[in-house]
C-alpha cells in the first residue's frame, strides 16, 4: 500500500514522520500500551492516511498554539456520516500539533468486535469508550478524543448539517474527575463528504442499525476540511465528577455553544467547494 502511494508521489514526508515518531517512541518505550496501541503500526496507518489528510481533504489546522504539553479531553463536533472526522483530528494531533500525541479515540462497543477494523483502530490508539478506560488513560497523561454527540452527530440529514446535536455529559464528568481541561474542536468541511443525505431512521430501527444514511454518493467527496482547536476550557474549581446535574448541564451547554460558534466562524472562512453553497 505504502509503495503504491509512493509511486503516485503521495508518500508521507519522511522527515516529519521521523521527527514525530522519534518523540512518540520515547513516550511509549515499549512500543505498545495495555490498550493495544502499537506505535509502529500507528506510524504505518498514518503514512497511509497522510495522502487523504494532506492531498484529498487538504486539511488545515488552526489554533495549534492552544495545545500545551498536557493531557486534554479533546471534544470535536461529529460530522460526515462515517467517522472520518475522528481520523483527521487524530492525524492533526499526531502530525501537526506540538508536542505530537496519539489521541485515544473512544469507540463504541460494536467497533471492538469488527475483525481487522477493530484491531487496526486499537493499534492506532482507539479504545473502548468506557469510563474506567478513560479515567486510567487520563491518569497516565494521555489525551482522549470523545465525540459527545455520538451517532446522533455523525448521522445527520442534510437539513441538520453543522448543527451540533445535544452533548452527552459523561466526557465532562470524567474531565472534572481527572482535573483535565476540555479542548473544544470544530471540524468544518466534513459534512460535504456526503452532501445529500437522508437518514432513514425508521428503517435503521427496523434493521437494528445505529444509522442508515441514504446518500447520492457512498465514497466521500474531496471537500476541504478545516480543523479549529479552541482555547482549553478549564473546569472551574468546585466542580467535580459528582457535581449536581444542573451545574454539569450548564458547563456542557457552554462547551457546546463554544463549538457551535467555532463552526459558524469556520463556515464563514471556508475554502470553495462545489457542494458548499447549499449549506451556508
Amino acid at each position: 500500500m505504502l509503495s503504491l502511494l509512493k509511486n503516485f508521489g503521495l508518500n508521507a514526508p519522511k522527515e516529519k514522520f521521523d521527527e514525530v515518531f522519534e518523540y512518540l517512541t520515547q513516550y511509549y518505550p515499549r512500543g505498545e500500551d495495555p490498550w493495544g496501541l502499537n506505535v509502529k503500526k500507528a506510524r504505518k496507518s498514518l503514512e497511509v492516511i497522510w495522502p487523504l489528510y494532506h492531498n484529498y481533504f487538504k486539511v488545515r489546522v488552526f489554533g495549534k498554539e492552544n495545545v500545551q504539553d498536557q493531557p486534554y479531553m479533546v471534544v470535536p463536533n461529529h460530522t460526515g456520516q462515517i467517522a472520518i472526522d475522528g481520523m483527521l483530528v487524530s492525524t492533526a494531533f499526531a502530525l501537526d500539533v506540538q508536542p505530537p500525541r496519539i489521541l485515544r479515540g473512544m469507540v463504541e462497543r460494536f467497533f471492538t468486535t469488527l475483525p481487522f477494523i477493530g484491531m487496526w483502530a486499537a493499534e492506532g490508539g482507539a479504545v473502548l469508550g468506557d469510563r474506567q478506560n478513560c479515567h486510567q488513560l487520563l491518569k497516565r497523561g494521555q489525551s482522549i478524543l470523545a465525540f459527545p454527540e455520538g451517532v446522533r452527530g455523525v448521522a445527520k440529514s442534510t437539513s441538520d448539517f453543522y448543527q451540533t446535536q445535544s452533548f452527552t455529559k459523561g466526557f465532562f464528568r470524567l474531565s472534572a474527575e481527572a482535573g483535565v481541561d476540555v479542548l473544544p474542536v470544530a471540524v468544518v468541511g466534513a459534512e460535504e463528504f456526503y452532501p445529500y443525505v437522508y437518514q432513514a431512521k425508521t428503517l435503521a430501527n427496523f434493521f437494528n442499525l445505529p444509522a442508515l444514511p441514504l446518500s447520492l454518493n457512498y465514497l466521500p467527496l474531496p471537500s476541504p476540511v478545516d480543523i479549529y482547536i479552541g482555547k482549553p476550557y478549564k473546569i472551574a474549581s468546585g466542580i467535580g465528577a459528582d457535581s449536581p446535574d444542573d451545574i454539569i448541564n450548564r458547563e456542557v451547554k457552554n462547551i457546546e455553544s463554544i463549538i457551535q460558534e467555532m463552526i459558524n466562524e469556520g463556515l464563514a472562512n471556508r475554502r470553495h467547494f462545489f457542494a458548499n453553497k447549499e449549506f451556508e
Partner: peptide
C-alpha cells in the same frame, strides 16, 4: 484462581 474468571469480552475495560 485465575484471571479467566473475568472472561474475554469485547466490552472489558483495561485494568
Amino acid at each position: 484462581s485465575t484471571y479467566h474468571v473475568y472472561g474475554a469480552l469485547n466490552d472489558n475495560p483495561t485494568f
